[in-house]
Amino acid sequence: MSEKDVIICRCEDVTLQDLHDMMDQGYTSFEELKRLLRIGMGPCQSNTCGQLVQREISKYLKVKLEDVKTQKVRPLATGVKLNSICEGANNES
């Protein structure tokens, strides 16, 4: 299958080709790729693409998978509506 048809990040619709093009330009860490391609910035927060991208970086740089630096994990663990947060905060006080 063509790299253009392989979706590596389904939240932000990034293909394997996009990822490889960016790596060819010298951006080879998850944090850099995230900022330029938006991988890991969607609703799944890299729960889906995280490991796939790690593996691609490992192959590209020819380093062991465990030596590829993992991305920063940020809150929230799952999407929560602002209204719900607001209600919760008001009930506490």
């Binding site: 969607g42 929230l76 602002l82």
Partner: peptide, 11 residues
């Protein structure tokens, strides 16, 4: 209106 949206991430 924005209250209907889900928060994805904070930093």
């Amino acid at each position: 209106l924005v209250g209907n949206l889900r928060v994805i991430r904070q930093w």
